[in-house]
Structures are given as structure tokens and as C-alpha cells.
């Protein structure tokens, strides 16, 4: 059993999972915030664009999005995210495109989590912000979004956990993350429960603290009304 840990770089594979998670989480948070702002903007066209993005991306399987990134954008359209002449360009490109795809996909969920947070902010807060002369963007930045973020910490935690596990889909475009290594081990060795157990445990170790952290954060940062 434990010789698997010696023969294969399990920790390295999980390190890739962590890298995918962290970078796409940052991307998803940025894109998702922009989308959420669009969806509550007073400009109808922005609201519609935001809704279109969320409805399209959220309802497309992640597998399709990542395959589209890899086959469509990278191989057919030749959009390289790294120097195409470097010796590791294929691997690096796929990792970066996986991060882009994961971020774009989860941004839709971040947007909806934030929007549910915006709905926890009473209308009076926005009225008070406007009444002291803050512009729309100042009201958002100073009053609405800080409260919306605090109100959406718990759902954002769920999105982050889902994102951690969804990084496994990146193995289909050749990113050497944990689940990819698991398949490799099963192919080379024998399919034992032990292999499943090691990888399942790895994901639990990654996600369980995230859940606990976000629950306590949401309690600690909750806006008292």
C-alpha cells in the first residue's frame, strides 16, 4: 500500500490540485464580483449581459468548458498562454487554460452567491448611502459590497469546496492533478480500495478545513443588525 506513496508523487499531484484551486478561486472571485456588480447595476444592458453569462456558463458542464478551452481555444485558435516554443509549453498551456476555465465556470456561482449576499443588505443602507451624496460606485464599494461579502461567506465557502473537487476535471485536458494520478496508479497497479482511500482522504483534508474556516468566518464577520 504505502509503496505507492514512494513510487508515485501523490503529494506533488495534490500540490497541483491546490495550485489549480487557489489560482482559479482568485480568478473566480474577481470575475464573479464584476458579474455581480453588473447584475445589480442600474444599466439594463449590463444586467442582461451579466444574466446571460451566468445562465450560459452555469448551465454548461465543466467538462465541456475545459475541453473547449483546450481544444477550441488552445489547439484550434492557437491562443497560447505561455511561450509556445518552450519545452514545457503543452503542459503549461493546459494548466493555465484549466485555471481560466475553472475560474470562468465558478465565477457564475460566485456571482450568484454574492447576489444572494446583496439581497441580505436592507434597501435602507443604499438609500442612506445615496442620501449623503455617495455615487453609485461609491455606495457599492463602501456600503453594499462589504456587507454583501459578509452575508455571502457561507455560500462562497460552498463554491470554494466545489471548486476544489471540480479541479479533478482538469485531468481530462492532461493536467497532472490528484485524480489524474489516481487513474494512472490504478492503470499501472491494481485497483485497490486503498488507492481510492488515499485520494479521497486527500480531498477531505483539503476541503474540510475550508468548510470549518468559512463557517466560523461567516459567524464572526456577520453584520449585526
Amino acid at each position: 500500500m504505502l509503496d505507492i506513496l514512494d513510487k508515485y508523487d501523490v503529494l506533488g499531484a495534490f500540490w497541483m490540485t491546490i495550485k489549480l484551486t487557489v489560482f482559479s478561486a482568485i480568478g473566480a472571485l474577481v470575475i464573479g464580483t464584476i458579474l455581480a456588480v453588473m447584475r445589480v447595476a442600474p444599466v439594463a444592458i449590463l444586467r442582461r449581459l451579466g444574466a446571460f453569462y451566468v445562465n450560459t456558463v452555469r448551465n454548461t458542464p465543466l467538462t465541456l468548458i475545459l475541453v473547449f478551452c483546450s481544444l477550441g481555444l488552445l489547439y484550434i485558435l492557437q491562443i497560447n498562454l505561455t511561450d509556445p516554443n518552450s519545452s514545457t509549453s503543452i503542459v503549461d498551456n493546459n494548466i493555465r487554460w484549466a485555471i481560466v476555465g475553472l475560474a470562468a465556470y465558478h465565477a457564475a456561482f460566485v456571482c450568484e452567491a454574492l447576489r444572494s449576499g446583496v439581497n441580505t443588505v436592507p434597501l435602507g443602507q443604499a438609500e442612506a448611502a445615496r442620501s449623503i451624496g455617495l455615487t453609485f460606485s461609491q455606495s457599492l464599494r463602501e456600503v453594499i459590497l462589504p456587507q454583501a461579502f459578509r452575508g455571502s461567506i457561507a455560500p462562497l465557502g460552498s463554491v470554494l469546496i466545489a471548486l476544489t473537487k471540480n479541479t479533478t476535471v482538469a485531468s481530462i485536458i492532461g493536467v497532472a492533478e490528484a485524480s489524474g494520478l489516481m487513474k494512472e496508479i490504478i492503470e499501472n497497479e491494481t485497483a485497490s480500495f486503498g488507492v481510492f482511500f488515499i485520494f479521497a482522504l486527500g480531498f477531505v483534508i483539503l476541503t474540510l478545513p475550508v468548510g470549518i474556516l468559512f463557517t466560523s468566518l461567516s459567524r464572526r464577520l456577520a453584520v449585526k443588525r
Partner: peptide, 22 residues
């Protein structure tokens, strides 16, 4: 912006206070 500027000159006190909770 013009409306925001004008609002800055008009104080408003609400029934439900509406202090910024955070």
C-alpha cells in the same frame, strides 16, 4: 454625479435610522 452632489447638500434622517451596519 450632479444628483449625488445635490444630495450631499440635503441631509436625510430616516424612520429606520439606516446607519451603515458594518
Amino acid at each position: 454625479k450632479a444628483l449625488a452632489q445635490l444630495r450631499a447638500d440635503v441631509g436625510m434622517v430616516f424612520q429606520s435610522f439606516n446607519l451603515f451596519s458594518h
